[in-house]
Design a protein around this nucleic acid. Sequence first.
DNA 1: CTGAAAGCGCTTACAG
DNA 2: CTGAAAGCGCTTACAG
Lengths: 334, 334
Amino acid sequence: MRKTPTVSDIAQAAQVSTSTVSRVLTGSSPVHPEKRAAVLAAIDRLNFRPNLAARSLVRGRSMTVGVMTQSLLSQFYGELAMGIEEALSGSGYHPLFASGNWHVDEERTAVSTLLERKVDGLIVLAGQLPEDELRDLAAKLPLVVVGRRIVGLPGQCMHVDDFASSYQAVRHLIDLNHRQIVHVTGDLAHADAVERLRGYTKALSDAGLAYDERLVVEGNFIEQGGLLALETLLVRGVSFTAIFAANDQLAYGLRLGLYRHGLRVPEDVSLVGFDDLLNSAYTTPPLTTVRQAMHTQGQQAARAILRMLAGEPPDLKPLKAELVLRESTRVLRQ
Amino acid sequence: MRKTPTVSDIAQAAQVSTSTVSRVLTGSSPVHPEKRAAVLAAIDRLNFRPNLAARSLVRGRSMTVGVMTQSLLSQFYGELAMGIEEALSGSGYHPLFASGNWHVDEERTAVSTLLERKVDGLIVLAGQLPEDELRDLAAKLPLVVVGRRIVGLPGQCMHVDDFASSYQAVRHLIDLNHRQIVHVTGDLAHADAVERLRGYTKALSDAGLAYDERLVVEGNFIEQGGLLALETLLVRGVSFTAIFAANDQLAYGLRLGLYRHGLRVPEDVSLVGFDDLLNSAYTTPPLTTVRQAMHTQGQQAARAILRMLAGEPPDLKPLKAELVLRESTRVLRQ
DNA sequence: CTGAAAGCGCTTACAG
DNA sequence: CTGAAAGCGCTTACAG
């Protein structure tokens, strides 16, 4: 097996110096057309590919953008990852993922792993790293935060207006004549969960409806939480005609709980989620939910990093979430 | 901001040569306890982290294992990716993903991107790269293939027995008295789809049931295909009491199609999937399906790579798929 | 057990 | 526009 060719081999084959080879490789300064052609030909003939480790060492750049994700397993993050990968493809940059699994310490470990590998930019997907740490990071390298708004980092945060979106979702239920609307919250240690709860509360009060704490149950953003939440509601014995879940996964769990208890959706209970996961168009019935467009957010985030890497401003604008009307809600007959 | 420290800084601080620093870093050869301690102290004090690019350049290893996945978006691959990441964590190796998106040419691009980044090992998730290419790759670096069995690479392939598993799934339906059993296949360009079809056929014939081609419709492993397949069946006008879908995504689509046409699961039609995606425990009703344990497969694959990297045999054994009985099937009343 | 030296494969001033 | 030289930050024979 032949050794993989290096710049020296190309230089020799093309009868030029390694400097010149490097110049045509990087385009850093002009090269005489003939020599350039000779170099290109040699590169092609020997099937040369520059050694990224060497390049990385001298340039101090790795052509890699780190992505601190929470879990590759979650569909939510899968979509984001996909968008990032797509937007990066063809740019010469490659994503490097590390998962925080919703634990601050793991998030820190993930970030240092990424930093150690000398990523040129960093995309942080939500999580709970203190804002200070995030601002410090932003001072060191191009940074984009998805799913959180960090004070002092305008244009570098990509997120949806949780308050307004959830307001809209609940408003939809109210417009359908529902008055006893349950809210299953996310993990209230997370700002998005708090904001969504706030949207629920405000929509209620704007409609002149009293806030009833028995209608609110804390979940944790996963299916199991939805299942549990339903049991809690049933035990409480409150009556309700609609449920607004803080995310789709909770909605899936709630859906199953309702099924187990013989409650039909939407005939007996209307159900609204948040996120619009890929699966939500295929649940029975298809779920009405707030579309977060994670795939698009991933693309936007990656493009912003690319801009920063090119010395341009990130220029990120918050995405508008939209309510996707499907078949899990219906008008309540008085 | 201070420059990040290098081995020279450590050497200077610890009053030793860079060689010695390197020795304690790599453990390649013994170092006098006192010097060792001094080096360790300096490393700790200056918060030194070796530059991976430099190390990679001299060693020719990147401490990275490439993963050619198909799509980060698919839950199926998300589980696999998660398993790989978990098993690699703490080993010093980090996964680097590149997606093939089910196109041979993109798969090739993904693999060369990974090779260019000098991955030390490679995990290939299914796809359609010719076996020859895979064998060539295996000759160059530690390789593990998930979801396919490649002739000549024993112990390096991790897959489930599609034939036996699907036989078992269909057998289950037959045991429930079903006689008119539909099979919605995957994309028959893929070996697993063919094997699953074969399992279906064999289970039928072993039970003395005639193969009826009107009961078989070709899908493509995604929800939309399941939805379409149901329409096809209805147009054909064949009667059936059970459906075996070649994967869960097809089953989700079929489930929605049935719902739209007012057919209940399992009262009117029994439904069985394949894969056991995370969501399948939360569909309405929860789906009976063949468990592929992708997360475990990912872990196993990564551990095998680690073994090969350590000079040991990969020693991979096929995983047994098991039929998970949930609530989407029921015994047919005669 | 240890240090000086060479080298991994590139790129980038520097001097023409 | 071009080449010789230095250097990125490590590790690994080599010689003690």
